[in-house]
Design a protein around this nucleic acid. Structure first.
Lengths: 163, 163
DNA sequence: GCTCATATTGTTATAATATAACATTTCTAT
DNA sequence: ATAGAAATGTTATATTATAACAATATGAGC
């Protein structure tokens, strides 16, 4: 399996473009409207691979002439989450672009506590153990959120802690 | 494996007593002070198996003569979390007593969205898949938080959705 | 092209959660 | 007894998120 973390020097503009293109497709197929604000918020969320707070995003929006208040950003985020284009990272109160838009899935993340990068990983491998335990309790599983915290390879190298 | 959910009619007073007794032991072994406030907050957290918000707990404290402000409760919770006696449920901004105090572990929960009960389950089974994926990315895993949402057996029965 | 129902956005206010900063008190080890 | 450290009290404020209602824009059907 290839690393879920992109190298620090990767060409991020393609990440953004891919995400925006995918969003167009997803929204069309959902008959949902990716309005300029929503599109712009998605783009802002995708300015990097670290989850960003709602008020951070809002601050940027404001500098762009949009006459924005908190509901503006929260509504856009709510929409994007519903469309499966953005995930909320509960432990950080922050939002990050989804890697697998359109595919039905929950968010499973490896979060680097040094650089803040959150790498979304496939959640299928988690479902085995967890659904087994759920079944043992006759628990009807709806969705699973996994937020694993640690240090990414790039940051380990940077701090000389490479194994 | 036995169900991680206790039956609705279980004798909860023993849950509380067990938790408080365990807390005494853990704090002694950590040379940490389980002061009256901290002990009382732990007891309040244990008033049920549903995570409770900080301000809910605070409200109760206030009715008891303690002259309490937000820092009172947040400090107590911080202490209890450090001692491994309480978990924070990030997706709910709420706090719940730990089932396995003293044992080193992360929180892994099945949360019923109907009754609010959060059942802590062993996290060992999760570590296989997730540490595999972490290793694939040379990610140094520190801790993992799993919050699975669904409907517990009791609530399925109550709403006639039993399989 | 109109027109209406609906979806989206604007706007103001406020709720809910959490922490900073510093004063005071209590505890513990000596 | 007393000094240093830990815990608590107190006031203020930061951060995150939502409620409620008004105004505007959009798209479907005519």
């Amino acid at each position: 399996m290839t690393s879920p973390f992109l190298h620090k020097g990767h060409d991020h503009s393609t990440c953004i473009q891919t995400a925006l293109d995918a969003a167009d497709v997803v929204c069309q197929s959902h008959k949902a409207r990716l309005t300029p604000i929503r599109r712009r918020v998605l783009e802002l969320v995708w300015q990097g691979h670290s989850p960003l707070g709602a008020y951070e995003l809002l601050k940027t929006l404001k500098t762009e002439g949009h006459n924005s208040a908190p509901p503006t950003i929260y509504r856009a985020l709510e929409f994007l989450i519903q469309q499966g284009l953005v995930h909320r990272i509960a432990s950080l109160n922050a939002y990050v672009g989804c890697n697998r838009p359109g595919e039905h899935h929950d968010g499973t993340f490896l979060i680097c506590h040094v650089c803040g990068t959150a790498a979304e990983i496939p959640d299928n491998p988690m479902w085995g153990p967890i659904s087994e335990m759920a079944q043992a309790g006759n628990f009807r599983l709806s969705h699973v959120n996994v937020e694993a915290v640690g240090e990414c390879a790039d940051c380990q190298r940077a701090t000389g802690q490479e194994s």
